[in-house]
Computed example of a mutant assay.
Amino acid sequence: MRIMQLAEEGGNPLLPNATFFVELIIFLIVLFVMWKVILPPIQKVLKDRYDMVQKTIDDNRAASERFAQAKEKHAETLAEARAESGKIRDDARGRGQAVLDEFRQRAQAEADDVRQAGEQQLAAQREQILGELRAQVGGLSSTLATRVVGEEVRNPAMVDEYVGGLSRQGGA
C-alpha cells in the first residue's frame, strides 16, 4: 500500500526514503552494540568451554598413556615376581631335598650302627654260648662214653682234647 501512495505522490518507489536510512542507522548501532557488548562475553564463554573440552581431551589422553605405562609396569613387575617366586620355590625344593637327604643319611648311619652293634652283640653271645657248650660237651661226652663203655672214663682231659679237635675241624 505504501508503494501505491508513493507512486501517487510522484516518488520513485525504488529509491529509499529517510525512514530507511534511520532504520539502517539504528540497525547498525544495534549491530555495533551487539558486536562490542554482547558478542565478546559469548565468545569468551565459548572459548573457555572449548579450552576446557580441549584440556579434558588432553587429560584423558595423558591418563590413557599413564594407564598404559602403569599396566606395562604392572605386567613387568608381575613377571619379575613370578620369576622370583619360581626361584624361591626351586631353592626351597633344593633345600628341602638336601634336608631329606641329610636325614636319610643320618637314619641310614644310625641303622647301620644299630645293625653293627646287633651283629657284634650276636657274635659275642654266639662265642659265649659256644664256650659254654664246649665246656659242657666234655662232661657230657665223658658221661656218654661211660655209659657206652660201661666203665668210667678216667681221663676226661683226653675227651676234651678230642672234642676240641673236632670243633677246630668243623670251624676251619
Rank of each mutant, 00 (worst) to 15 (best):
M1N: 12
R2Y: 14
R2T: 14
A7C: 08
E8D: 09
G11H: 12
N12E: 14
P16Q: 07
A18Y: 09
L24N: 09
L28M: 08
I29V: 14
F32K: 08
M34F: 15
L39F: 15
L39Y: 15
Q43D: 11
D48N: 12
R49P: 02
Y50W: 05
D51T: 03
V53Y: 04
D58P: 00
R61F: 03
S64D: 10
R66P: 01
A68D: 06
A68R: 06
A70F: 06
E72S: 12
H74N: 10
A75F: 00
T77S: 13
E80F: 06
R82Q: 12
A83D: 13
E84N: 13
K87A: 11
D90I: 02
R93Y: 09
R93P: 00
A98Q: 15
V99A: 15
L100K: 15
L100F: 15
A109G: 05
E110L: 09
V114Y: 08
V114W: 00
Q121N: 05
Q121H: 07
Q121R: 07
L122M: 06
A123F: 01
A123L: 01
A123E: 04
A124G: 02
E127W: 01
I129H: 05
I129L: 09
G131R: 06
T143R: 00
L144G: 03
R147V: 10
E152W: 12
A157R: 08
V159F: 00
V163M: 05
L166P: 07
S167G: 06
S167E: 12
R168H: 08
R168W: 05
R168A: 12
G170L: 11
G170N: 11
G170P: 05
G171P: 00
G171Y: 05
A172P: 00
